[in-house]
Write a protein that binds this DNA or RNA. Structure first.
Lengths: 198, 198
DNA sequence: ACGCAAACTTGCACTGACTGCAAGAAAGGA
DNA sequence: TCCTTTCTTGCAGTCAGTGCAAGTTTGCGT
């Protein structure tokens, strides 16, 4: 289908670097891990590290660069009779299902991120980037304009907040509750206009 | 009231560094500005720069470190008969009023941030930090538990999204629309459960 | 199987962010 | 005025991150 040897090797190297970064930071903490350490464990030269990730924290976060585009396409591909909120909710639910399938990487990622605010910062930036792009897609679908109308930026931001909230609860509950269920609960709260609890 | 000479000087130096960073980055772009440049314009040594800000981007963002605590106190100090959403909304509106009073710094900040995604990342991290703390305050007020219940984390995240959305529209509209009005509109959308536009 | 072109890895040298330390200067208070 | 505390500064050092050029590996047509 896609894969020559070259592409498989690249993917393997990328994953090795990400995993090495994740494990090392989990073991020692962010400041006690150098790029050289990560490159060593992944069996590549320090210089090669920077061919794969632009910075140390990026390697720890290790986000799939194609995920954002997939998210946008999934959103735009939702049935036309769904409201924007319904479509956005469906997309985040699908993401949750995929994340939950991975029983190793995401828990470790969340553990490390939770322990290191600096990494959380980079993650937040990624969410911000995602928000920008998503807002454009939402505007396209609803006929609103980013920056002029509140709707697209707000919905994108709210969707990101919903995902963050769900991930946080997933982590806090030691991954016992199914992530998609947590996502559903969160969206129920949102569409009800955030009624006070109790 | 508070101010000895020493404290006034510290505040002045901090503001000078922040303004210098902001102007220089606006003029040349983030990568064309070094810490030495910023320190030069603010008339302090490069080493002193790091006594005030832990990094270059932090100086550009230049957030008031006490703002977060004030926000939490403002939230906890709202009348007990207000719902959490009403209280949160009131706090963000008050913030908006304060921000709008400053007709120089915030517009420049937003302009620079909009032009430099790397800075936006740091800002997002600050919002994330704020969310964490706020979530704690919300939990305290509502008797819910951060990490267990969705409510506190979600409301904090949504409030941050509302502020980001409003700031973005304020900037896009060249600061002609009153920021507090934009905040109100955004919260109206939220409490209505994000109804589809049109 | 061969050989060329493109892509990937690596080492080297360099810039600049950031830190710890210790000495000097400035401010506050008795 | 003297002493203490705090702030500033220079120095030396570590490490992140980048451009370049040489060497290596893979893809592909022949």
């Amino acid at each position: 289908m896609t894969s020559g040897l070259r592409e498989r090797k690249k993917l393997a190297t990328r994953q090795a670097l990400h995993l090495a970064a994740l494990q090392l930071v989990d073991e020692r903490g962010l400041d006690e891990v150098s790029v050289d350490d990560i490159a060593d464990r992944a069996d590549v030269s320090p210089r090669t590290f920077f061919n794969y990730f632009p910075s140390k924290v990026d390697a720890v976060v290790g986000l799939d660069p194609s995920a954002l585009q997939q998210q946008v396409e999934a959103f735009l591909g939702r049935p036309a009779d769904e409201s924007p909120v319904e479509a956005m909710r469906a997309v985040t639910r699908e993401q949750a299902v995929e994340m939950a399938e991975d029983t190793e990487l995401w828990p470790l990622r969340l553990k490390v991120i939770d322990a290191h605010p600096a990494i959380l910062g980079r993650l937040a930036a990624a969410f911000g980037e995602s928000e920008r792009v998503l807002a454009g897609a939402i505007a396209e679908r609803t006929g609103t304009r980013v920056g002029i109308d509140a709707y697209p930026t707000l919905l994108a931001g709210v969707a990101a907040a919903a995902m963050r909230t769900s991930l946080h609860r997933w982590f806090t509950g030691d991954f016992s509750a199914p992530l998609p269920d947590l996502v559903e609960e969160t969206w129920d709260l949102l569409t009800a206009g955030l009624p006070a609890p109790h």
